[in-house]
């Protein structure tokens, strides 16, 4: 009797903690975000009135929303393209016989473990106009002290550098793991056939790690949509520069929800973000299925 109960019920008890927390802090907030977004809703006092799609109508004509969307996209492109290209190169280097492999891997991974806040603070110092190391280096070439936060392009570049520094090594190790799973015989066969090393890399290695490449692009995009800490701490104030030239979507969400207490509007922004993430995740799923099916 007890043994039967153990076999029937215990598995559910084992997975229950996850699902209780997932329902409470995952599903419920997401559903309620949708509900909130259909209201004028004050964060501290609660719902004011049902307003239908008014928050979304406002959102799609709000220049500040488009500004944040454009900044987020721009920082994403500037940080992801060089980052993944560099990660690929680093992985190729690490894939060769090296002495002290763990030490190399560790040194490459270390930036990813440093608290984001600390990263943002030291890079803000590095890019500082008056005491910054980068500014000092630029003076060797005769440049004047430069205010990195003042222009959109340079601020995006500054934030992107932080993201690149944190994530390149991590992605390199993911690529490395994928490369090592590609059968060595393929490399050797190609080499015997007289293919150059670049050719082997392009025709054997790259196709072999395609699912991982795709995975990192999607994960970077989902991470890029959520970018907050780096731009928030880059420079004085919390709105991403005097003209919001580096305010991201999540910063705009935070401003509306937790500085102006406009919960309804913040919820609408969240829901748009969620839709963007869902699109990215399903693109990933479809592409992976197609690639795996073909391979």
């Amino acid at each position: 009797m007890f043994a039967r109960l153990d076999r029937k019920v215990t598995p559910y008890l084992f997975v229950a903690p996850f699902f209780v927390l997932f329902a409470t802090f995952g599903v419920y907030p997401l559903a309620r975000t949708a509900w909130m977004s259909l209201h004028r809703w004050d964060l501290l006092t609660g719902p004011v009135r049902f307003s239908g799609l008014a928050n979304y109508a406002h959102l799609f004509t709000d220049p500040l929303f488009y500004n944040a969307l454009a900044n987020t996209a721009s920082i994403f492109v500037v940080s992801t393209v060089p980052q993944l290209a560099a990660a690929l190169g680093i992985a190729a280097l690490l894939d060769r016989p090296l002495r002290g492999r763990t030490a190399w891997h560790g040194a490459v991974l270390l930036p990813n473990l440093v608290p984001v806040v600390a990263v943002a603070l030291v890079f803000t110092q590095l890019f500082g106009r008056d005491q910054g190391f980068v500014t000092w280096v630029l003076t060797w070439f005769g440049a004047d002290p430069f205010d990195w936060q003042a222009h959109a392009w340079s601020a995006h570049l500054g934030v992107a550098v932080m993201v690149i520094w944190r994530w390149t090594g991590y992605n390199a190790l993911l690529y490395l793991a994928a490369m090592q799973a590609v059968p060595r015989e393929l490399h050797e066969a190609a080499a015997l056939d007289g293919a150059s090393r670049a050719r082997v890399f392009r025709s054997v290695t790259l196709p072999g790690i395609r699912p991982t490449l795709l995975f990192t692009v999607v994960v970077s995009a989902i991470g890029g949509l959520q970018l907050f800490t780096e731009p928030r701490l880059f420079g004085v104030g919390s709105s991403g520069g005097n003209d919001r030239q580096f305010q991201t979507l999540v910063m705009y969400l935070y401003e509306n929800g937790f500085e102006r207490f406009d919960a309804g509007y913040a919820a609408a922004i969240s829901w748009v973000l969620f839709a963007l993430c869902a699109v990215l995740a399903s693109v990933n799923a479809v592409l992976v299925r197609r690639l795996v099916g073909r391979g």
Binding site: F25, Y28, R32, M36, L43, A263, F274, C277
Partner: peptide, 17 residues
């Protein structure tokens, strides 16, 4: 499915809760 859904999207109701 939930691995890829960022928790911060429900941040406003999370705060309320």
């Amino acid at each position: 499915g939930s691995v890829l859904v960022p928790a911060l999207l429900g941040v406003v109701p999370m705060f309320e809760l």
